[in-house]
Design a protein around this nucleic acid. Sequence first.
DNA 1: TTTT
DNA 2: TTTT
Lengths: 143, 143, 143, 143
Amino acid sequence: MNSVVLVGRLTKDPELRYIPGTGRPVATFSIAVNRAFVNKEGKREADFFNIVVWGKPGENCANYLSKGRLVSVRGSIQNRSYETQTGERRYITEIVADRVEFLESKGRSESASPAGNDFEKSFEPVGLDSEGFQALDDDDIPF
Amino acid sequence: MNSVVLVGRLTKDPELRYIPGTGRPVATFSIAVNRAFVNKEGKREADFFNIVVWGKPGENCANYLSKGRLVSVRGSIQNRSYETQTGERRYITEIVADRVEFLESKGRSESASPAGNDFEKSFEPVGLDSEGFQALDDDDIPF
Amino acid sequence: MNSVVLVGRLTKDPELRYIPGTGRPVATFSIAVNRAFVNKEGKREADFFNIVVWGKPGENCANYLSKGRLVSVRGSIQNRSYETQTGERRYITEIVADRVEFLESKGRSESASPAGNDFEKSFEPVGLDSEGFQALDDDDIPF
Amino acid sequence: MNSVVLVGRLTKDPELRYIPGTGRPVATFSIAVNRAFVNKEGKREADFFNIVVWGKPGENCANYLSKGRLVSVRGSIQNRSYETQTGERRYITEIVADRVEFLESKGRSESASPAGNDFEKSFEPVGLDSEGFQALDDDDIPF
DNA sequence: TTTT
DNA sequence: TTTT
């Protein structure tokens, strides 16, 4: 069992890529999660996590999220290692999300929200579940 | 966001049903989850939860789990209400699982394990995730 | 193991009580948690959960939260049963929270926020952890 | 909000240290968590996580856990960075646990269990919660 | 009994 | 209604 829930804000706009060959979409972004406690100096620190979202939900993240937005994310923590040019093994930790929820409507943002955005009509918090995940009715998700 | 993780033991063998019309499988069982703390009398109490597992993973639960087995379960808590014969509204809480892992090999059990069972070959803890995860069609819940 | 995380909005203002004898504070409130999926009719349903917060964090909830506020809650699901006047056993499910975070500053609220409120100075999301909970002293980590 | 639950097996015996100055105990160990899914080659991979447990629960882990034991862990993911001798910044991810439960009695283990161990008398799964953590006094719940 |  |  490996289950994580995080609530935090995007540190940048998401990036969207498509896997060569399969064309499978994958979005990546990073969120800042404030710690529950202030440290000795009385300051609230944050941890930063790399989030990976596969498939249609990844595309939704790329389309509707941007730097600063508050989200909740559920997924699994995964470790990957890779080799550096100098032959060292380096480890990186990612959250592979199976659920991302947008906790603020774009309307709240200072930046104007795009016209004709159906998403604006739905109430918050709004859920986006992982493909393969069977939605209640995958095809009536309107965004 | 609504995410729960429980670890506990089945209080009975699972029950498997098929939704009339769609034929969709759904398993139900109950687990006992020991509390983290002993109470004032020094006894460890337990909470009991009803688990619902849709689709193929539900069938796997019905085939490989039995009373007493230790499992971990991830899912969402859901409330349903129904009307009693006397017209009262009654509330019930269920865990709709999207992941069930078997934390003991059947081999540990006293009961013989079925021959030709692929499952036996995998190491523990073993995960069964929801392929084609099926959402809830609230009103075809048969129990 | 019994761990739940919920994100939702208060359906009413919290209630605060003090246990007779010990004087221990306990806050209770209910939150609405939107489901990740829309149902067959295309509507987003919600589940409603009763939250219980003991101690100083309970007092903080009572002081800083109100109907409509967005919170994240971590805790354990617990079942209690009681006897009705007619002698029936009735079951109720509660979330005993060990962490409650306020996901909106009061400033966003339409209601004026109280003057001289230290809490206002902290950034969101803000964490309130269970009394006695041990914070991390980052720099005495020895490894 | 930052909450993780893992179930896995210790890859080594835990290490216990005491913070110079304060004398605060801290245990560290690593667990292997099997992935829910097999990979393309049909093999079940695992992720490895470093677990940190402060205080009395850390001492309990050091006393009662050993390589190979199955545990469930709840906590927060935290990132730390440090500087290498060559002046590079390196990042490491840890799970700071606030709850560790032993999912197997020592009795099941091949290694003899220590005599006079109260812990042996309790049933599994057994909970160890964070010091200072407040237990529930069931019968002074006023609602 | 319910929030946005 | 409950498991170990």
